[in-house]
Amino acid sequence: MRPLTYAAPATAAEAVSAVRGDPQARFLGGGTNLVDHLKLGVSTPGRLVDISRLPLDTVEQTEAGVRIGTNVRNSDLAAHPLLRSGWPGISRALLAGASGQIRNQATTGGNLLQRTRCVYFQDVTTPCNKREPGSGCSALEGYGRYNAVLGASEACVATHPSDLAVALTALDAVVVVLGSDGERRVPMADLHTLPGHHPEIETTLSHGELITAVELPATPLARRSTYVKTRDRASYAFALVSVAAALTLDDDGAVADIALAWGGVAHKPWRAARAEAALRGRRPDESAIAAAVEEELREAAFGPDTEYKRPLLRGATTEALSRLLGGLDGKPGGTSEQEGAR
């Protein structure tokens, strides 16, 4: 591990200027991903600017919804009464991620900025365009089970690993960012980027910009949200594919409003806008859902290693919407016996 200096500024503004002025500096949040990358040699900063103790750690009800400080720990956010009742899909996404210990440590902003778990990105002995631009992509010809199927490029087929980011994307969250010129607001859908020729760039944030909060609008749709995650074991694993879904029906049982986002399919959380459009105004039965999923996958690129994600996406999307049709949210992995949707 490269020697590094450590500082914990007293204010967010000081933290921003400390990182802004030093290309070798990085923000340190909960550290669950960055500290691992220091050990692996994936990340080699010369200076860490610790923001994890800044008092940006409250969940506040606002006129429009809720404002979540960047340092709110994943466990606290998942368990917060406001989120559990108003945005159950956010709580579900958080609870589906990591372990109890890691959720106590990981922060809201840090969760969004965690790096891909592509095995080649984390293995410094192999070529990886994201870690070392121009070195090549080992995943294209190598172990491809976790590869992206939407929006990938010849340079990179990595997927974004966050569950929270997928749910925030579905529920139209806005990220509050502090830079040297003050604050700006970035819709979740615009925070992460597709790889193109520059997979080393993962967000629209510039060096030294700090996520200080995430805002979620309160909507009837958000109250009827859930999250379904598929993985290789029952707990404590990253998603193969995941689905954040929210649904309201009209009096005829047709879709009044719907939000769908997928994880495990792309370099960023994937808002399934085509599938949403295909379902809006229709009764969300199994064949309509399957057709909507196919519509979203029209430009997807599957290979032998990722073909399994097609039926998995169909099944997980059907499961998520069925849960919402069967009751408010519902039990992960089981049959809901809760009250009706309307």
Partner: peptide, 14 residues
């Protein structure tokens, strides 16, 4: 955590 009512991934009703 459970004692103060924190839900988990398998909690049916959040």
């Amino acid at each position: 955590e459970a004692g103060r009512g924190a839900p988990s991934h398998v909690t049916a009703d959040l």
